[in-house]
Design a protein around this nucleic acid. Sequence first.
DNA 1: ACATTAAGTGATT
DNA 2: AATCACTTAATGT
Length: 213
Amino acid sequence: MFSVKKALEESYGYLFEPLFLEEIEKVGALKRVPKGEQLIEIGDLITMMPLVLDGAVKILREDTKGDELLLYFIEKSDTCAMTLSCCLGNKKSEIRAVAETDTTLLFIPIAQMDIWMSKYKSWQRYILDSYHTRVMELLETVDTLAFLKMDERLLKHLQDKAKVSHDDVLHTTHQDIAYDLHTSRVVVSRLLKQLEREGKIKMDRNKITVLEL
DNA sequence: ACATTAAGTGATT
DNA sequence: AATCACTTAATGT
């Protein structure tokens, strides 16, 4: 039996005081989404803010042709920074969010944000810190894009995927990886082969084992 | 057995 | 590193 209270305590207990946790539990709407399900589409109006209780969500940007590029993952005890900026200006989402693994989320109505902002110092801190870590993560992504070659990007991506799913065996296809990295399947296949030769990964059909973490 | 989907390869830009 | 054209291998019906 799944308990919101327990999950909250586990993921956010060190951040918020017990009384506040109870309030979150009361106000939040629990949602569980299976791997691969889309949570937010570009252009969507944001009305709820998600707190990740378990699992991981990948955040993607889309180019003019409809191809996508992975920006970063958000995990347990994270929230979507994009949502935060959307809430302030009541703007539409600039990103797409897709469940990377089976994920459990708690949705908070954005109206609560303001209330908690003035009521709880711990919430203030949390939002500010979230913003900060998100900016840093984005910077890291920019660095990766600008300075790393495709083979290095690929390996890093595999390691990130393994990290967020808490499993060094990835159940994915070359094509899916190609979408995330915004490249072609052929390139991914060839570089994976190379990584396998170097002993950094092991491949099977629909399965990649990351050996170097 | 056949169709579909994933992955491997060589050649070209 | 991308794209094309083609092959091979695995999987579903």
